[in-house]
Write a protein that binds this DNA or RNA. Structure first.
Length: 212
DNA sequence: TGCCAGGCCCTCTTTAGGGCCTT
């Protein structure tokens, strides 16, 4: 049994914290042994205005964040919830930038700020090249994953990403005869070269031959 | 008013360009 993995999703005011964008909502789903074992979700007030485009896109309004706890408080709680668990997100580069930017505002010693991230989008590109696309919703439909609520809200998207992660782990296990697909294996698959998946997994596992 | 990012991946590539994906 591997340790828990924290699947995270942010809703934000835009695409780039370097351009002043801030998080408006965060959700974390803890997954262990292919099952969701705990959840964290909160809106947060970062003191910035949400554009009408983002409001219609996410359903998160200025009034909703005005009534939410301060961003620093929410991020501190999220970091404690994640603890030492490795992280997973869909298009993880995006969520990693906001995770690190928001935690950096808490100070240089914020916990969990540098936990490793794996990406369900990069993994899906490796494992499911036949999928019609690699958006989270497209992959959910492709794998017939259960609906989890309104898309583009943090907890619903984190739940779908967690279900996608469970599918990825199950497929890796069945393909390579594993009992469990660890986060480090996910990182190895994510980093492997195109058309070199089996060789990359064999290198990671340290086994000379694995049934395909 | 209009525009804004970053990184991976593919290919009509590698001295590059553009699509995808996240909000």
């Amino acid at each position: 049994m591997t340790g828990p993995i924290a699947v995270i999703d942010f809703e934000t005011t835009g695409l780039s914290p370097a351009q002043g964008d801030r998080a408006t909502e965060v959700a974390v789903v803890l997954v262990q042994g292919g099952r969701v074992v705990d959840r964290f979700q909160s809106l947060m007030n970062a003191g910035v205005r949400i554009s009408s485009f983002i409001e219609s896109f996410t359903g998160i309004s200025n009034a909703m964040v005005a009534a939410a706890p301060p961003a620093a408080q929410v991020m501190a709680e999220a970091a404690r919830f994640v603890g030492s668990a490795p992280l997973v997100a869909h298009n993880a580069g995006f969520d990693r930038r906001f995770w690190q930017a928001e935690l950096a505002r808490l100070g240089p010693d914020a916990p969990a700020a540098h936990n490793p991230f794996a990406c369900t989008m990069l993994l899906s590109r490796r494992l499911y090249p036949q999928a019609p696309g690699h958006k989270l919703g497209t992959l959910a439909a492709f794998h017939a994953l259960p609906a989890a609520g309104r898309a583009h809200r943090a907890l619903a998207d984190a739940e779908v990403a967690a279900a996608l992660l469970a599918r990825i782990q199950a497929d890796l296990c069945s393909r390579f005869g594993l009992a469990a697909a660890s986060h480090s294996l996910l990182m190895a698959v994510q980093a492997c070269q195109r058309h070199a998946l089996d060789a990359a997994v064999r290198r990671h596992l340290g086994t000379p031959s694995v049934a395909a």
